[in-house]
Design a protein around this nucleic acid. Sequence first.
DNA 1: CAGGATCAAACAAGCGTTAGTTATTGGAGT
DNA 2: ACTCCAATAACTAACGCTTGTTTGATCCTG
Lengths: 201, 201
Amino acid sequence: MVASGARKEQIVATASELFRQRGYHATTVRDIARELDLQGGSLYAHIDSKDAVLREIVARAAEAFFAAVEQLAGEPWPAATRLRAMIHAHIGVVTSRLNDATVFLQDWRYLEEPGRAEILRLRDAYEALFRQVLAEGIAAGEFTVRDPRLASIMLLSGLNALPGWFRPDGALSADHIAAEYAEMLLHGLSVRPLADEEDDR
Amino acid sequence: MVASGARKEQIVATASELFRQRGYHATTVRDIARELDLQGGSLYAHIDSKDAVLREIVARAAEAFFAAVEQLAGEPWPAATRLRAMIHAHIGVVTSRLNDATVFLQDWRYLEEPGRAEILRLRDAYEALFRQVLAEGIAAGEFTVRDPRLASIMLLSGLNALPGWFRPDGALSADHIAAEYAEMLLHGLSVRPLADEEDDR
DNA sequence: CAGGATCAAACAAGCGTTAGTTATTGGAGT
DNA sequence: ACTCCAATAACTAACGCTTGTTTGATCCTG
């Protein structure tokens, strides 16, 4: 084990940015050090291993996602309202913690065991939050979708691809994207046959 | 340059499978060779470089996607019908050419220039096929979605995450998934307020 | 002056790739 | 039919470089 000071924070943050940009395996521990004007070996006064840094980044992102979404899933609201809030919250985490979230989504599979298996479990528990709300919405007659598992996968797939194209200084704000995504997911791309305006938003 | 025999085919196919499973950088040229009971160096009688193998896999996948989808986009059908067909075709490629498609979607960014830039151009041209159909559908009053770019991104994000969870020997067939995805994307997860059954399918 | 942070240097291991050599093979010429 | 040759494909071995990590000395700073 090893110290946990402010320098370590810089190292993890720098690693998070480089992992996001280049991927875990294409980033060298010397790359990370150079960014902080250090020698490669100097990092090891603060970290245990490259894998431990990845583990920490991924763990942070996972915590952020749960902290933002878990409670919303249990609120006493209509399922559609909860789902909308969860979509906003999830996108909020991806966009506001872009480095950690991207690394989590893109490099978790390079974790060494048993960390990898642990994250896999967390991912499923997280997806279950959405699955659950979808299932409840179906039971309540709010949703027409047939398979809540398939729906939760598709929904999260859309949200989790954000790091591939979202630009923090771009024209589309996180809130705008969240609102549009929620609209498209809940009501679909097509016109609603034989229907006029709705209200739910 | 170097021969293009049947052995090369095996090498590229093996590389495609390993790249899919472990990722490009986590796969060694000696790993590929071992799978074929060869020594690492022996591959170089058939290939130019590891990067060239990746380039070939990615190029094959790109061709497959265009071959399956390009024509459908221009058919004289309603936009919703075309979009449905394109979703089926895209998922068909992902599931039937799982190795190549996964590597294309997951490792294209590790291509060396200028191959990487070229693929980036192809990706945009491909997304434009969907964007175009969406825009035409909006113009024709078939779609309510506001931003065809955002819609095409969300749609393709959902489809392109398939390699992360699809299992060829699983319970869900490619056609089943495609039908469900198309349904969810076109009509949304929610009940359609003030509407009854539709027909389009 | 003690303790943490950083350095330079090295470590063993692994990387993609090349070179030179040895089997294997399928015709061409007698 | 049988040799001989050229080509092909594989091997062993090594190259030069990079990887993650460790070591022991040196520097700062409180």
